[in-house]
Amino acid sequence: MSAAPRAGLPERFAVSAARRRRDWIARNLIVLGTVIALVPLVLILYYIVRKGLGAWSATFFTTDPTGNTFFKSESIGGIKSAILGTIEIVALASAIAIPVGVGVAVWLVEYGGDSWFARAVRFFVDVLTGVPSIVFGLFIYIALVTGTGSSYAAYKGSFALALLMLPVVTRSAEVILAQVPDGLRESALALGAPRWRVIFGVVLPTALPGLVTGVLLAVARAAGETAPLLFTAATTLKTSFGLGGFMNSLPVQIYRDVTSPTTAVVNRAWGTALALVTMILLLNLIARLVARRSRLA
């Protein structure tokens, strides 16, 4: 803060006491608001770490859940199948949602412009962003599970997650692509590059760090969703690599464990939650590293 008013300073140049007071109040209100916003975040992290770390053990990540919930003498098992299941399901969902989402964004920015069709696409993408995740799960459940008379399968869970990711990827990619300066497109076109080469050679590489950030945020969101997986990929205990069969996943494991009457199993839910949060944190860190390594200012 500024020093006390200097002697001999002409009055019209001196900061008035009332203004000083208002400044002090406004600054402290902002600080207070920030603190209030941070409280739940810190509390959540604190509880997850404190309760979750207790559940972590050497075998926590290397064994499947056993399904045992009442015999204290026997192990309840770890979360290996859930970790691998989440990675597999989210990887397939990403493989579907990222190319389609980025493709839609490229079309919107490079070709769609302000046409009525582009505006309609934007509108529906926005609507999709706001759809609750359980609705995507229900849709896949009706379309691919009961609709086909077949059973749950991991790939059906991936489809549900892909639907969930699609609008997020599209919207974030569209914003990033629109930020690529038009001058770069013009320069490339003026060099005699066909439009598709301008897109692949200049626009997408320039936007890459932003695209990666947006995509990883969508991946992180999908990795934490329970509802779309509950009645699409279903629940199982064993580690599975078949996308056509049942598959376990971290959010579903948390959901199942937390409703258990057995304390040890509830504690495993905390450990699983910590594992999930750590995975998402790692994804975000990678996103930041990618953004920093790029040459884009």
Partner: peptide
């Protein structure tokens, strides 16, 4: 049109090298 632009180059007002290159 692509061939026209190869024969007739253009330099713009703002220097704009491709930032990723």
């Amino acid at each position: 049109v692509v061939a026209v632009r190869r024969a007739i180059g253009m330099v713009f007002q703002k220097p704009n090298p491709f930032p990723t290159m």
